[in-house]
Design a protein around this nucleic acid. Structure first.
Lengths: 338, 338
DNA sequence: TTGAAAGCGCTAACAA
DNA sequence: TTGTTAGCGCTTTCAA
């Protein structure tokens, strides 16, 4: 049995072959300046010793860790986990590993997370979730590490980001509902702290109302529910407001509302129409199924990561504010669209 | 404006205070052997310079990276993402960061992932998913890095793991169905490659049949569907088998089957009873809601991570094969239990 | 209580 | 094409 010693180092390889460290390093890093015969010998020794370069030492010497940080609200949320999957797959493709941190949408945890990632010398960061406040921004900018936002935006578009055009999406969806005669349309958001909610979805909703000449009523905007259970409570509030249609930011919340109404004898879509935003499996699992904005979740993450690889390579981005296309899917929770 | 220089190092701090590296290192690491007045000066300088220890350098010098690896099938799967959340929270608590890798349940990707994590010098690994094959095991064992399985097991219980007693859970669930007169009970698994599926769930199911004196029929065991869509296809196969009850390993698949049957005019639970395993939101979103085994998903991850911290500290584990308690939740997809 | 100095394992000039 | 030599920023004996 060729019992293997403690991790072989580059020294062991160099010694075994009788070349210098530099040469081994060159073949490991695919540098061309190595004679073929030398390369072969080195490769053979590497194989025999089972040598694996120590990424930490590498990181220290080269100042590149081939690790990125992903800062997100919660892995458990399908929307974000799908974005993350897009990020991870592309990261993998470019040989990066991802350090994941959940923030539960809390600003100070985001700050802590980013600082911590910087400490670990990540080469770049993908950020999702709550709007970036000034303190967070300053941490980032002082870091000199590229960052790309996925499903989020920064003040003044100061940071590169990937999204869909939420304003237009919500405007369109709301307009259709208005066109069908609805006057009390609830808008269900996750949090007013989220740029997407406050600056985009709400704005789209308001724009549609304005076009239709209908006064905006703050009572119809809800932003408290993040879980299915909380959605049940919120649904009761919706009912109190005699709402006839709902536009929701999240599928689980939308299903929660749907179920609450149906469990209380309402008919959907006859008594209440519902449109949701993320087109996750939750929207096809319910009965009736939920009409939804269909955003390319995976792609949002994937494109963001692709942009990040460019930035990490020192390349300039042609466009920094990417808006990916989306579609509207009509299902049973809304009446037949014209 | 006190413009900040490029990242301050420990040298800068030492120089500024007029002490040695060692002293700064001591205060940073909370070593007691520093005079209070010295400590104060150092702390002040650290603050003024905005010094943040470089974790990579630290990792190289101390051989501890305070980073763990999490190897899992797919972040997008609620079951695994909940486990992961448990892992992450405890990791955070103990100041570890988690490097996440998706394997899509493919053995060779798991091997690659583990090797890669080892290269990055992670202090420990949490592994979820497919049964660990011999090659994977050997990679792990040669690494000298502790590993804990969450929702998985290894051959001969060779590695510490955290689970529920799947055998008993599935046995009980199946028995109840048998007691209500069912004779054609389908067992829906994810993959026969998964230890949990093959060695536990299937065994529990078979045990129940045996106790009831009913022959096992391989035709009634399905293991192809991992997605909602695939679930639809598989549901058609179930129908062909004239199944009257279903025990499913995953909620999305269970809902898929439920919907398929209902969409085809069947009544649940009158014509078909369904029991699922994970008690995710998918099981309360459907109508009727799904009866489910309720396993403490978050805790499985949390406990696994807690065990890993101990192992990383060089402590011995009192128990290596942890079985967490579970409950059975009866909802509308099954007939009233006696 | 403090400091000096030797690494940790590797990359990256610079020479040869 | 190859080797020499500094570091990278920190921890950790060992002495003082």
């Amino acid at each position: 049995m060729a019992e293997q010693k403690k991790n072989a180092t580059i020294y062991d390889v160099a010694e075994k072959v009788g070349v210098s460290l530099a040469t081994v390093s060159r073949v490991v890093n695919g540098n061309d300046n190595v004679r073929q015969s030398t390369r072969d010998k080195v490769l053979k020794a590497i194989d025999e010793l089972g040598y694996q370069p120590n990424a930490v030492a590498r990181g220290l010497a080269s100042k590149k860790t081939t690790t990125i940080g992903v800062v997100m609200p919660d892995v458990t949320n399908i929307f974000y986990s799908e974005l993350t999957r897009g990020v991870d797959d592309i990261a993998q493709m470019y040989q990066y590993d991802a350090l994941l941190t959940n923030t539960d949408d809390e600003q100070d945890r985001a700050v802590t997370a980013i600082k911590n990632l910087l400490t670990k010398q990540v080469d770049g960061i993908i950020y999702m979730g709550t709007k970036l406040s000034t303190p967070v921004m300053s941490v980032i900018q002082s870091a000199g590490v590229p960052i790309v936002l996925a499903g989020s935006v920064a003040e003044n578009e100061a940071l590169p980001s990937v999204n869909i055009d939420y304003v237009t999406a919500f405007e369109t969806v709301t307009s259709k509902l208005l066109a069908r005669g609805h006057r009390r349309i609830a808008l269900v958001l996750g949090s007013r702290d989220r740029a997407i909610d406050q600056d985009f979805r709400l704005v789209g909703y308001q724009r549609a109302l304005q076009e239709a000449g209908i006064d905006y009523d703050d009572q119809l905007v809800f932003a408290k529910a993040r879980t299915y259970e909380a959605g049940q409570l919120q649904a009761a509030d919706l009912m109190d407001q005699n709402v006839t249609a709902v536009v929701a930011y999240d599928d689980e919340i939308a299903v929660s509302v749907l179920n609450y109404y149906q469990d209380h004898g309402y008919k959907v879509p006859e008594d209440l129409e519902i449109v949701t935003s993320n087109n996750t499996n939750f929207s096809i699992v319910s009965r009736p199924e939920l009409s939804s904005i269909n955003q390319p979740k995976y792609d949002i993450g994937a494109v963001a990561m692709r942009m990040l690889t460019k930035l990490m390579n020192g390349e300039k981005l042609k466009e920094t504010q990417i808006k990916l296309p989306y579609t509207l899917i009509s299902r049973g929770s809304t009446r037949t669209q014209s």
